[in-house]
Every structure is written in structure tokens, then in C-alpha cells.
Amino acid sequence: MKLCQIINGIAWWIFESEEMPEFANVPGVVLKDITGLDPQPQEGWLYDETTDSFSAPSELGPLPEPSPSVEEMQAQTLLNTEYLVCLAEISNL
């Protein structure tokens, strides 16, 4: 089947799979079976969940980056803190 990953109302990734992947239940991520849709949506197209339909954007530009999740921001903060601690320890040698 042909699937489309939708993030924040934008067709983000189009791929083929024999079954629905496990990450289909991630909050904020919608997976839609687009097998047989005409016209076939493309990456960057807009998805309207209320009408369950895709539409080409009026102007194609670069895809916006999805907002980081709270967990991703916490992980980045932890990495930055560990990096700064390592730098401080090295400078004290």
C-alpha cells in the first residue's frame, strides 16, 4: 500500500509498505493510505483532516521544519549541559 505521513497538515513523507508501521500511533503524526487516490498527493501538499482531502499548495517552497517535541527539547538541553560540563572539566585540567 502507498502511505502518506502527515505532520501539521502537510504531506511530509510518501512511502510504500505492506502493512501499517508501528509509528502510526505517534501523537501528532497521521498516516493515511493513499493507494488509488487520483490525483496522487505529493510531499508538501496540504491535508485537510475535516474533509479528508489533499490539495496542492498555491506556491511550492521548502517544507517547514516540524516543531520539536518536548522530549526532543529536553534531550537537546541535556546534551548541551553535558557538553558544557565536559568543557569545564577539560579547562580545569
Rank of each mutant, 00 (worst) to 15 (best):
F54C: 03
P64G: 06
W45Y: 11
W45A: 06
V26Q: 05
Y83D: 12
Q42F: 08
M73T: 02
V26W: 01
L31V: 05
W12D: 15
N80H: 09
A56G: 03
D52S: 12
V26A: 05
E82W: 13
G44L: 05
E59H: 06
T51G: 14
S53V: 00
T81G: 10
Y47R: 12
A11G: 07
P62T: 03
T51S: 15
E43C: 08
E22Y: 05
E18K: 08
I10Q: 11
P41M: 10
M20H: 04
G28Y: 14
N8Y: 09
E65C: 03
Y47D: 10
D33K: 11
P21V: 02
D33Y: 06
I14W: 04
E22A: 11
W12H: 15
N25L: 07
E65L: 08
E65D: 10
P27N: 13
E72T: 00
G36P: 12
P62N: 08
E59T: 02
L79S: 13
W12R: 15
W45C: 04
Y47H: 14
S69A: 08
L78V: 10
P41E: 12
D33T: 07
Q40T: 13
L79T: 05
P57M: 06
L37R: 12
Q74S: 08
P68R: 09
S67K: 13
T81E: 12
S17D: 07
E19G: 07
G9L: 03
V26R: 04
W13I: 01
E18Q: 07
S17C: 04
N25P: 01
T51V: 09
E82K: 15
E71R: 10
I14G: 08
N80V: 00
L31H: 10
G36L: 09
A56D: 04
P66I: 00
I7N: 12
V30R: 15
T51H: 14
Q76P: 00
E22C: 03
T51A: 15
W13D: 12
G36M: 11
S58M: 03
I14C: 11
E71A: 13
F54Q: 05
I14H: 09
G28N: 15
M20G: 02
V29K: 11
Q42N: 14
W13E: 13
K32S: 07
P68A: 09
D52A: 13
T77F: 07
A56Q: 11
V26M: 07
K32Q: 10
I14T: 05
A75G: 02
Y47G: 08
P64A: 04
Q74A: 10
